[in-house]
Design a protein around this nucleic acid. Structure first.
Lengths: 157, 157
DNA sequence: TATTGTTATACTCTATAACTATA
DNA sequence: TATAGTTATAGAGTATAACAATA
């Protein structure tokens, strides 16, 4: 008869533990994947927010991505230094900036997205395409159950 | 025809992103669940390591759990302060301690384990028992694919 | 000489508050 | 008076190095 494991082996049977264990590993791995491009996960998140809606103010980016405005300053600073974004005057509010993507950023983004898909391919290599679809659906369900906002990471590494 | 999402909505379609998003949320949530017991995830991990093999040295605990020995000092300090573990003389090595569980710890542990199961029940509430089994199996596969050690968290919050 | 446990120090991150210029 | 952006500061957490006692 099957014994219920009692030590740390029991944690390997807990879905939340596995999610956290894998999540931490993948977050670190994603940092390593983006590093050669000089990009961090949260600068990547800002770029993706802008590719959909360019010219947002730092305030808009902050609330959309749940990143504090004080932190957003440094993120935009870095993007400007790298020539990936520019602070343009905001039409209609002279206090704010319209953060705008450069052509360089638009050319770079597909490569960054590709890293995310490559990471997914590797981590799910032992699953069939059908199994992958089901896992994706179940993770989306759990994300919703937890009240998480789609595409918003609670703590951008 | 279905458009591929390009902004941050695309991240909601990426398995690694969802794993990280959920993982961070669940780790924080687990901290909140253990807090009323005065326990943190890593003290919990040490207790679980000891329930299986009591009297381990700090060195053994460190390498088993991938926690640095410098950090382990403070963890055992806290467990001693709470009366959950004791530093006993180590038979055969006078440099080391045999970290030993107290009765109080043995009585406490089932309640802590129950929190983990309760968390699992809540996050998987929208899944059937059969779906849950499949998710568990797939997460274990991905954990293995990533080279992670069963039951060992890469960064104990 | 290497190892166990410990302590001290520096470094990174984050959170809070406070400042300026506009609204 | 409130808001957008910015800066400064303090606190928590982590990593590294070094130490005493024992192997």
């Amino acid at each position: 008869m099957a014994e219920r494991p009692t030590g740390i082996a029991e944690l390997h049977q807990r879905i939340p533990f596995l999610l956290s264990q894998l999540g931490v590993y993948l977050a670190d791995d994603f940092v390593r994947r983006l590093a050669p491009f000089g990009v961090e996960p949260r600068t990547y998140a800002v770029l993706k927010a802008l590719i959909e809606d360019d010219g947002q103010s730092q305030r808009q980016l902050s609330s959309q991505l749940s990143i504090h405005r004080n932190v957003m300053v440094a993120i935009i600073d870095k993007l400007e230094d790298q020539g990936l974004a520019k602070r343009m005057p905001h039409p209609g509010d002279r206090r704010a900036f319209a953060v705008t993507l450069t052509d360089k950023a638009r050319k770079l983004l597909p490569a960054l997205d590709a890293e995310g898909r490559a990471q997914e391919d590797e981590i799910t290599a032992s699953l069939t395409a059908a199994e992958r679809k089901i896992v994706l659906r179940d993770l989306q369900r759990m994300s919703a159950a937890a009240g998480l906002i789609p595409g918003v990471h609670p703590k951008l590494v």
